[in-house]
């Protein structure tokens, strides 16, 4: 087995003076989908933010494809091929759907753009009719799809997904699950923070459970349900 795509060892993170993560360690291999489970407030979102450099953090090792990223700012990490889908979608409400996409578009590290609009719309058919729609005028489910699409046009190798099922209708969750399975099949690596265990089971190979900022358990996804609190 080659070196993991994402390698985290001994990650601490803080919100202001309050420490939120304590020595977290995990890996994501190429083509693998990994779930971060645990209660809200346990540190799942913080873990993703810490990888993106959106919170103050320190780690023994924080590496992407073997290269250290612990000292890099957010935009450099994004340019190294990390796509981020934040917890509350954070669509630019003032910009149209197409402008949202356009702002995020940049070739991958190999210089290729693998996500022309047609391919995006094939993945999320709902978006095809909304090109000129202002982000703020889209429904929660549509925004969630746009948030994933926006991350994809940056041609990432690793996708960080934060609670894509939170606050959206169960029917949207089903569509999202199908789309994510398709993405995984193309070889994209995924780190998914999610409370919805059913979704994780559909998508992920392995899981880590975070309890109060510390790693509580890790193992194959199939065994995760047994460890539930």
């Amino acid at each position: 087995m080659s070196a993991p795509l994402l390698e985290i060892d001994g990650l601490d993170a803080w919100y202001g003076p309050a420490q939120a993560l304590f020595g977290l360690s995990l890996t994501v291999a190429r083509g693998e989908a990994v779930a971060l489970i645990g209660r809200n407030g346990a540190g799942k979102s913080t873990s993703l933010k810490a990888v993106m450099g959106l919170v103050r953090r320190r780690a023994r090792r924080l590496a992407l494809d073997g290269a250290d990223i612990s000292a890099l700012t957010t935009h450099r990490i994004a340019r190294l091929g990390v796509g981020y889908v934040p917890e509350d979608r954070r669509i630019f409400t003032d910009l149209t759907m197409e402008e949202n996409i356009g702002l995020a578009r940049r070739p991958g590290r190999d210089g290729a753009d693998r996500w022309p609009l047609e391919r995006l719309f094939a993945l999320f058919p709902n978006l095809a009719d909304l090109r000129g729609r202002r982000g703020g005028a889209m429904s929660g489910g549509e925004q969630q799809m746009l948030a994933v699409a926006r991350a994809l046009v940056g041609n990432p190798e690793l996708l960080l997904l934060d609670e894509p099922s939170e606050g959206v209708a169960p029917i949207i969750v089903e569509q999202m699950t199908a789309a994510l399975r398709e993405l995984k099949a193309t070889g994209l690596s995924i780190l998914l923070s999610e409370q919805n265990v059913a979704l994780c089971e559909e998508l992920c190979d392995r899981a880590y459970r975070i309890d109060q900022g510390e790693l509580g358990w890790s193992g194959p996804m199939a065994a995760a349900r047994l460890t539930a609190d």
Binding site: L54, R79, R90, L95
Partner: peptide, 25 residues
């Protein structure tokens, strides 16, 4: 312009702009 759209996006959420690979500084 792309600069203008970036300004409008950053006006709403500058952290997210950075997370899309745009140099915030």
């Amino acid at each position: 312009t792309r600069f203008g759209r970036t300004v409008r996006a950053a006006t709403q959420d500058r952290e997210m702009v950075a997370a899309l690979g745009i140099n915030e500084a």
